[in-house]
Each structure stands twice: as C-alpha cells, then as structure tokens.
Nucleic acid binder design. Structure first.
Lengths: 218, 218
DNA sequence: CGTTGCCTTGAAACATTTCAAAAGTCGTGG
DNA sequence: CCACGACTTTTGAAATGTTTCAAGGCAACG
C-alpha cells in the first residue's frame, strides 16, 4: 500500500487495510470530477491515473500522471478541485477522508509519511509550473522524459529509456502545448542526437546528460 | 501565528511559541536558496515573501507570493527546492523541522491544520500550473488580479480593488511572461473596460464578473 | 532641473498554434 | 496474408501571440 505504511507496525496494517474500499476503472473511465465533493483519499495499486483540469473553452491541462503507489485526492476544500481519469486499466483502493484522518492521528509514523508524500506532490507541481512558465517546447519535453525516466527507473526500468504509455494528446495537455508541437519537439531532439524514437511510445536516451541540461532550462 | 493553531488548546500555545525563533529580512534580502538544506519551517508574521526558482540561463519563475500568516519551507527532500526572498520588509518566525514534526505528532489538531495548509499550497500551485499551461497573457493577468484580490479581501481590503505591491518584473516572472507583455495586457484590460489603473500599483475592478470569466479561461 | 529607475508603447523577430494533408499503425474481415 | 478503414502521429505552410530590441513617458529624488 505504497510508501504510506513505511514505519507502521505490521500489527496495524490490517486495520488500515480493512477500512479501505477497492475500486477499479478501465482505461478512459473517470474516477471523480473536479466539482465532486472530496470524500476520499485514493491509492493506486496498479495502472495509472491522470489528474487534470478543464477550462470553460475546452482547454485541458493535465496536472499529473500518477502510477502504482501514488496517493491522491488531497484537497483543502469541499471538492477535489481536479478531475481524475484512468489512463490505463487501474486498480485502486480508497479511504473515507475522516477515517483516513483518524489514522494519521492514531499512527504518527503514518502522519509523517503522509506529510512526505504530500510535499512530494507539491514539489512536483512546482516543477511543472517552472516548466510551463520558463521552458520552451523542446526543454519541456526533455524535462518530461527525464521525469518519467526517473519514475520508471524506480519501478525497475533501465536508466537510458523511457516508455510513453500516454498519447501525444496527453503529453501535449501536460506540457501546455499542442500535439503538433510535441511531435516537432521530439523530431528536433532526435535530429540533435539526444534521443532515439524506437517506436512512437518508446524512447532511448542517446545523451542523457545533454537531455538533463535541457530539462533544467539550459 | 497563522491558522496553524486553530483548535490548539491555549495552554499549549506557549510551548509552540517558545520553540520558535524570530527572523527578519529587509526588502530584497534572501531568506534561503533552493539548494540550502531544508532545516526550518517558516511562518510570516508581517510583510511578504516570494518563492522562486532560477533556471541556468537566468530565467526566474516565481512560484508564489506569500503574505502574513502563510506557512512555507515544506519540502520532501534535503534541500528547499525553491528560493525565498523578502518582497517587502518582513518579520517571520521559524521552527526546526524536527521540533515542528514533534508538535504535529503531539498535537493532532495542529497536524490536521497543517495538512489543510499544505493542501492549500498544493491547490495554489495547481492553479498556477493551469494558468501557465492554458491561459493567454490577458487571462493570466485576470487570474492573478482575482487571486490577489481574494487574498487581500481576507485581510480586510475592498471587494473591487487590488493593490500590486510587487514590480512588473515580479508579476511577469510569476505569470511566465515578460514585463512588456504584462504592461500590454494591463492596457488591454483597461481598454476593454474591465479595470481601471488608478496608479501603477493600484487597480480598480470595473467588471469583476467578466474578469473572473477571463481568469477561468473563457 | 536633470538624473535615475520603472513602466509603457512601437516595430520586427521568433516560437507556437492553427489548419491541412500525408504517413504510419492497428485491428478486422475478406 | 493482404486489403481496408479508423485512428494517431508526423510534416508543411500560414496565422497568431509573445518576445526582443529600441525608444519614449513618467514619477521620485537629489
């Protein structure tokens, strides 16, 4: 159940587990919408989720791609404030907010762990804001690939590759671009010899250092 | 001491207070840099702070303007990850991370309150990401004015005005624009009859509803 | 009253978007 | 196994919004 239970005595795990509900969503199905009352905290067991917000003219901004182990549904208000959709067939578990809150009070180690996770979410969204505000298309793509690569490496993937399970349209909506600009950006990175596009959803890094520099905004 | 102590029994306040240190910074002085070890949690008593990140080519992205009562310094890693600078003469207090963590465990009400504050920070940075990713210059300005207006209204300001204590350069670096584009955007909003620029750092809303719609991305 | 710093305005350059079409991928059925 | 159609990705050319570079206006200050 993610990193949430690090440091939690094993004897308490069943309590946490018993109070959770299991939920499943197929690819493309919606888990909740931004205006829905924020009743639960979710944890991904398998699959992936996109968090996004829609503008009134149909602009979609994806605010995060989440994977196994990620926790979400954290909100300060009545509603979630973001929508969540399954980006692949996904298994989750969820807790009622109140119950979850009780756990955090009951098990201080879990409270600490929760703060760590929440601050990671914050750090990630600051990374995104920096990318959207101050990086050009090519740099945003580099940052995205490096970010995904690190996330996938944690899950056992190789150090010089990245797979893109999401569509160009999803990537575009995450990076604040259009699919055409994403496509052109990938082509540019290829022509510069930084990456190799094996197939449209699998990239090999040819010069990871240069990619990292680009990603920082060089 | 901000909203952090809501629900905390008065008898505990001195403990919290005693363990804090007071810090002052004059306008323009740096409080910490992104690479500094994240040793403290800060709370603003008076004044304002900008959180920002610098790119290697000198690009500055401001990630937040913070005011009295705001809490910051939350980070998942060893370092702060963002830099903090006084945007006006500012008085703060700070706690050592470890001690602060102890309080959160000791006083569950404070833990809850902290989670609320942390999730507000997250929500704000998601708002910023949406603005940077999917709004044009005019819309970003509208969103910024509405946001500041709400923040200032909480502190007792009128409902149809906003003061801009920060420079055009700060606004530009927050909205991912240049000062020229900010200036032109303000002019456009003026010409459309949505705002009135009384002086360069004080704006009156002439059509707040239209402004809000723009801010949402209409 | 001139200097300094910040804000505004103008014109050309640039990056990204928009619109349009071609190329590639995938599953289905002949 | 190839052919077909639907869908996604890539490429091209024109349009658009923002940036860059340059100059002018304005207020504060000595």
């Amino acid at each position: 159940m993610s990193d949430l239970c690090v440091g939690l005595p094993d004897s308490k795990l069943p309590i946490l587990y018993d109070s959770s509900e299991h939920v499943e969503r197929n690819k493309g199905e919606i888990l909740f919408e931004d205006v829905d009352p924020a009743t639960h905290i979710f944890n991904i067991q398998e699959g992936s989720i996109t968090l996004y917000r829609m503008g009134p003219s149909g602009q979609r901004q994806i605010l995060g791609f989440l994977f196994s182990g990620d926790l979400f549904g954290i909100s300060p208000g009545e509603s979630y404030g973001v929508s969540a959709e399954a980006c692949a067939d996904t298994k989750l578990c969820r807790w009622e907010r109140n119950k979850f809150d009780d756990f955090l009070v009951l098990f201080p180690a879990m409270g600490r762990q929760f703060r760590l996770i929440a601050s990671k979410s914050l750090a990630q969204s600051l990374d995104l804001a920096f990318a959207l505000g101050r990086l050009n298309a090519e740099q945003r793509l580099a940052a995205f690939f490096i970010h995904l690569n690190e996330r996938q490496a944690e899950m056992g993937a190789g150090p010089n590759q990245v797979s893109l399970p999401m569509s160009r349209s999803d990537i575009a909506d995450y990076l604040g671009l259009t699919i055409e600009t994403v496509s052109r950006g990938i082509t540019k990175l290829k022509k510069k010899g930084l990456i190799n596009l094996i197939i449209s959803d699998y990239i090999e890094f040819l010069d990871k250092e240069a990619l990292k520099e680009l990603a920082e905004g060089a």
